[in-house]
């Protein structure tokens, strides 16, 4: 089996690159953290990788709007190689700020046709027309402030290669601009119809709810989106922050976890049970397995 190679993007203000790298390594990938300047210098730099991750942080201070400046940089310098990366059947994951970047660069949900016909030969122009006609964005939390809290996520699609269908997972969010909104109800319906919704915020019993179950006021409790191929995923919560059992906020309650509303097997490592994989790891494990199988 060929070694899976993953790239973790670095740029000014990105700050979750180290733990994201660690999560990918745990999943078995060989990982390089690469600064965006190096990719702009050498556009072929992406070719040797099969997984690209846009990690969390505050790229360029989230000035103007979260992820906006980095998205602008990607549109104008990296549209072509990134489109090729996706067209080649490879995987792209955006976490928190990385998700904001993917949405603001028009890569997710990736349904806005706009002027993007086959006739538009220039990928940069196509991307620009996409963002001008974008129907989905991510904006300030209803609470008006940054919040760090753990939330439950229910998967909504079977087509996204990162997701284990049916497995509800528990991850932390940490953001001030995580509310997903659509231009109108029609675009919302289209998102759902085209199976772009990857995850929803739910309570421990799997039911949607108001704040804080839905921590930012996202429409329809949406926490993450995938593109039409299912090979691009963006989500506000941080899977890389739950890759070992002692990151779970209740880990010190050991066996008590069983009663915490988790449908599937408890992770009771300390109580002598076979520990279940930490929830966030599934995302990285699935990505690496997919590449191993398909490349």
């Amino acid at each position: 089996m060929a070694q899976v190679k993953a790239i973790v993007l670095r740029a000014a203000g990105i700050n979750c690159d180290m733990e994201t790298r660690y999560a990918l390594e745990l999943a078995g990938a060989e990982v390089q953290s690469v600064h965006i300047n190096r990719i702009i210098e050498d556009k072929a730099a992406l070719e040797k990788f099969q997984i690209m991750v846009f990690p969390g942080g505050f790229s360029y201070g989230d000035d103007v709007a979260a992820g906006k400046i980095l998205a602008n940089q990607i549109i104008h310098h990296l549209s072509e190689p990134l489109q090729k990366f996706i067209d080649d059947g490879k995987l792209v994951l955006g976490i928190c700020n990385g998700f904001q970047v993917l949405v603001k660069a028009g890569i997710l949900p990736g349904d806005s046709k706009g002027l993007a016909t086959e006739a538009t030969e220039n990928t940069e122009k196509r991307q620009l027309s996409k963002i001008s006609n974008q129907s989905v964005t991510i904006t300030c939390n209803d609470s008006g402030k940054f919040e760090d809290r753990w939330i439950y996520l229910a998967p909504q699609t079977k087509k996204c290669v990162f997701i284990e269908p049916g497995r509800q997972i528990y991850l932390p969010i940490a953001h001030g601009e995580g509310k997903i909104v659509t231009k109108d109800t029609a675009s919302m319906e289209k998102l759902k119809a085209d199976e772009h919704v990857a995850f929803k915020y739910v309570n421990e019993n799997g039911e949607e709810g108001g704040y804080p179950v839905n921590p930012n006021g996202s429409v329809d409790s949406i926490a993450g989106l995938t593109d039409t191929t299912g090979r691009v995923l963006g989500l506000m919560p941080h899977p890389e922050r739950h890759v070992r059992l002692t990151q779970h906020p209740h880990w010190s309650r050991h066996e008590l976890l069983r009663t915490c509303g988790r449908a599937s097997a408890p992770h009771g490592g300390a109580m002598g049970h076979e520990p279940r994989t930490a929830d966030g790891r599934t995302i990285f494990d699935n990505a690496v397995k997919y590449i191993q199988k398909n490349f």
Binding site: A23, D148, P172, E240, R241, Q247, P249, S252, R253, C260
Partner: peptide, 23 residues
């Protein structure tokens, strides 16, 4: 106050500032 601070970044937390069955 505590929720406004990112206490999970770097993935190094073991005992978090808020704890218990409802965090």
């Amino acid at each position: 106050v505590i929720r406004q601070y990112d206490h999970e970044v770097q993935g190094n937390s073991v005992v978090k500032p808020l704890t218990g069955v409802n965090n």
